[in-house]
Design a binder for these strands. Structure first.
Lengths: 371, 371
DNA sequence: CGAAACGCCGTAAACGTTTACAGAAGCACG
DNA sequence: CGTGCTTCTGTAAACGTTTACGGCGTTTCG
């Protein structure tokens, strides 16, 4: 680990000034002879330019942060998988912040933006508190938020439409003749939990089904707790014929419990997950799931951020990604047999199944905020 | 995005020199009155120290890189999940490099170490070429390699023992009375592919089973191609009674094909995966899988790197993580019913199943290399 | 009361770049 | 040979910190 050569070392060896070395290395017009000498010296010394010094001078780090609760969560992972190549192609490095479910950590991360070790940030907040909004308003580098943020917050924003997503699922179940559709939700003080809970109520209302609070059980967003919640639910009401689970992990827990209880899926109880993660395709029976477009949201966020990093100031943008219902065996009695579909080589492989989308296949961009 | 306040701004406002400001901010002994003034000014201005300038001066970035082929791959993800919190606790940020399966990209990443935007790096090379070894020898910052590296390479090294892992699987299948045990492998010019292929041969030999090359099929490490490979295998040889798959994704593909072909799992064909990812627990039948300790390897690597960053020079270390066989329904006729086991809150939940480990439960540390 | 000792503080240099500016060198031309 | 122009190069300042060093004011003690 010897002290690496710097621009000065090269200058000495080539017998020129550091300014000339810098010019050569940056391809600015220089006499041929000088170029040759500098290149030779750089080559011999194995010179590599120092990113930190460049950043200090240029005020650009070529780094972008991605902050979310948990890399282990497949939905966030799907975003990451899309964000990474987009940033890489644009010459940015990716700094990962897995904050855990702790709100204070999210605030910390926003605060650390002030340290300017990144040029911008993509964040998926679990909750959006007053503190979040204050930090966002005062942020010293551009931030793109995945998840809804109030009108007027000065950041670009990528939204899922979980309201429509839930409606797709409930309509689907209703169309299959199910009438006792239960919701297994995560904490209602989280962004997704609240949205899904409200959307469930609305969707029932639209179909003229009664809202029965016995049919709603709340746990967290993980498998074991999902299993517990479903067990409790089954204990309480015997005639449930469909379960809408707030994410795929909960749905897996549901499958475990239903199997143990001897209820057939989908004949006795249909199960729908949300997020359409790899697990949905891997499970058996494979899981019908509402895709909220995690991958698309990730890509959109990355593109919004790059835009802003390159073009600078403009009014905040809002992108909404439409949901899709991916129908698989956990709701349809006759699952398709082995499917052989094209598969992204970089992914872990998921079965798209039958896709029922909203009619707008492209994502919509609305202007918003102040000028 | 106004130009943020610097140490100079504070100095002016507080009426002291920048040196005093720096001292206060770093907690060096200072008169109480000065501390007060500086703190007040910093507070009012919303000062946040500039990480880039600090790095330049201190020659420490407090960043560490993690480079592997694909974040989407559950095995790498498991490592990441362990690495992240360890680094975070030690005050390091994590820079993610997903190189894809391209060797040139891995070399690039190693080269970029010279830019000194990180203090060190953890790398999981897909292949280890001559170019890798040269870069590693010349690396200007400490590197920990996950995956075997030749004796004498001047880097810390964390290894899986896939030889023992494969033997555990083959022994298990043999113990269940299976005699036509096929191998569905990935490319044999990758590190894991080569190791698993060789180990399979050895394990058969130890049990006195013949090596039949018809029983070996090679694809890649993904689900669709795994399905293809298994289909080809079944076409070629009719009497296969066990499949050892080089990873869990391949095994999922195998389950798809077997189900479609009407072969029962495990009654007709037992299936074993490798890596024991979340998918193994999620699939149905749940998948017996050889855990190569991805999580443990990730943690070990992070700890080795931190050690080296703090303590500096010492001879290279080698850590070997023992494999475990996790038995689930895809090999045992009677899968346990719903299991309720403790679950890591940060994870996506996996069923440990019955664990048959090697007798050494702790990982072994051997000295190695030159002094 | 003078000198030594001590505690604080400011000046300036350094980390490795980029870049504005001005000087040097070369050349053509009158 | 002087002038003006072009082309190249070197000097120096700047980015925002940390830190060695020396100076100053106060205290302490002989």
């Amino acid at each position: 680990m010897a002290q690496g050569p710097t621009i000065t070392t090269i200058a000495e060896r080539a017998g020129v000034s550091i300014a000339s070395v810098s010019r050569v290395l940056n391809g600015l017009p220089t006499r041929q002879e000088t170029v040759r000498k500098v290149m030779a010296a750089a080559e011999e010394l194995g010179y590599v330019r120092n990113a930190v010094a460049r950043s200090l001078k240029s005020r650009r780090t070529h780094q972008v942060a991605f902050a979310m609760a948990d890399v282990g969560n497949p939905a966030y992972l799907a975003m990451l998988r899309e964000i990474q190549p987009v940033l890489k192609a644009a010459g940015y490095r990716l700094v990962l912040h897995s904050t855990g479910a702790v709100v204070a950590d999210e605030i910390d991360v926003l605060h650390s933006l002030g340290e300017r070790y990144v040029d911008g940030m993509i964040m998926v907040p679990l909750r959006v508190t007053e503190a979040h909004l204050q930090m966002l308003a005062a942020a010293r580098a551009p931030v793109v938020v995945i998840g809804s943020v109030p009108e007027g917050t000065p950041v670009d924003n990528v939204r899922a439409d979980s309201r429509t997503g839930v409606r797709l699922a409930v309509d689907h179940l209703h169309g299959l003749g199910r009438r006792r559709i239960a919701l297994v939700n995560g904490p209602t003080d989280t962004v997704p939990g609240a949205a899904r809970g409200a959307a469930y109520r609305e969707a029932l209302a639209e179909l003229g089904l009664p809202y029965d609070e016995d049919l709603v059980e709340i746990g967290d967003f993980y498998r074991a707790e999902g299993a517990r919640a479903v067990a409790a639910l089954l204990n309480r009401v015997g005639d449930v014929d469909a379960l809408l689970c707030a994410n795929d992990l909960i749905a897996l827990g549901a499958l475990d419990v239903l199997r143990a209880a001897g209820r057939r899926v989908p004949e006795d109880v249909a199960v729908v997950g949300m997020d359409d993660t790899d697990l949905a395709a891997a499970s058996w029976p494979s899981l019908t799931s509402v895709s909220l477009g995690s991958a698309e949201r990730g890509r959109a966020a990355a593109e919004l951020l790059l835009d802003r990093l390159q073009e600078g100031e403009h009014e905040p943008r809002v992108v909404t990604v439409p949901p899709r219902l991916v129908v698989r065996a956990s709701t349809t009695p006759e699952p398709p047999a082995v499917r052989r579909e094209p598969e992204r080589r970089t992914g872990t492989g998921s079965s798209p199944g039958t896709s029922i989308g909203t009619d707008e296949e492209t994502r919509t961009t609305e202007g918003g905020g102040t000028s």
